[in-house]
């Protein structure tokens, strides 16, 4: 597997690029902090005197909000927009002269971006939030282990959806609408803004059959220990399922896209 050296190098380079533009992130930290703060006060108001809602108490909810946003910093990336841009500029065609897989490279760049944010954004951010809000961290090492496996899957599923949205540019004239719509759908249906268990039952039924819960809801529920025992394994199983299933449309779309690329010149 000589290619892994290449992919590691891709991660390293993206990391360097992020470092070069790190000032962009100061504003990001502010935005995330404001979001977390706003949701914290919102949930405080909702809980009021209530002990627990849908099986979660107020402290768990605060932790849920904080960790959901911090995990987002890791799994979130802009490779859908990057792919769209590279398709429109004709750069993807030129990538065909390189001995690597374009989508693999894009995924690694996304990972480099995610790791950068995890280290320089989420970790310090978590400390700040821990000082500012009453958050409970688990003292169970296994929970942390499951959480990290889970956000790795969040990254994979979210990136797969990004690859699909990005590649749609091959077939659509204007893709910005789709990319924007996808972002809203993910924020809404992934459980970032509201835990899935808080949605009306009929909505939960539908969301069960969608991949979005694998992105935010599952890792956050694991971290807050709202999932326990076999629930954790089931949740990880759902993530694994989606990570595997999404490979199929990606491959299909890539074959079609490549055909379009090499026949019509992009």
């Amino acid at each position: 597997m000589g290619n892994s050296a290449v992919y590691l190098e891709m991660i390293r380079i993206r990391f360097l690029m992020m470092l070069a533009y790190r000032t962009n992130y100061y504003s990001g930290i502010l935005i995330y902090s404001i979001n977390i703060g706003a949701y914290y006060f919102l949930w405080q108001a909702i809980y009021g005197a209530q002990e627990s809602i849908q099986g979660m108490d107020a402290a768990q909810m605060t932790t849920y909000v904080a960790v959901a946003w911090m995990a987002r910093a890791f799994y979130f990336n802009n490779i859908d927009r990057e792919i769209a841009q590279e398709i429109q500029e004709g750069k993807v065609a030129v990538e065909m002269i390189r001995p690597y897989h374009y989508l693999g490279v894009k995924t690694m760049q996304g990972l480099g971006e995610g790791l950068f944010r995890l280290l320089f954004f989420s970790l310090p951010g978590m400390v700040v939030i821990w000082l500012a809000f009453p958050i409970t961290f688990s003292d169970n090492f296994a929970v942390w282990g499951f959480f990290f496996i889970s956000i790795l899957f969040s990254f994979i599923v979210n990136t797969q959806i990004n690859l699909l949205t990005g590649m749609a540019t091959f077939f659509l004239l204007y893709n910005t609408g789709l990319i924007r719509g996808k972002r809203v759908v993910i924020d809404l249906f992934s459980g970032l803004l509201l835990p899935i268990s808080f949605y009306p039952l009929w909505a939960q039924e539908i969301m069960q059959f969608l991949p979005f819960q694998a992105i935010s809801y599952i890792p956050s529920m694991i971290f807050t220990e709202a999932f326990t025992g076999t629930e954790i394994y089931q949740a990880l199983g759902i993530q694994l399922f989606w990570a595997a299933v999404l490979i199929i449309p990606i491959q299909l779309m890539w074959v079609l896209a490549k055909r379009q690329l090499i026949v019509q010149g992009g």
Partner: peptide, 20 residues
Amino acid sequence: RSQLWWDIAVQESFRLLKKV
């Protein structure tokens, strides 16, 4: 059309291509 990576130093591009 440039084939180098726009935002990183030239030698980083070279290093990457060397691996590729």
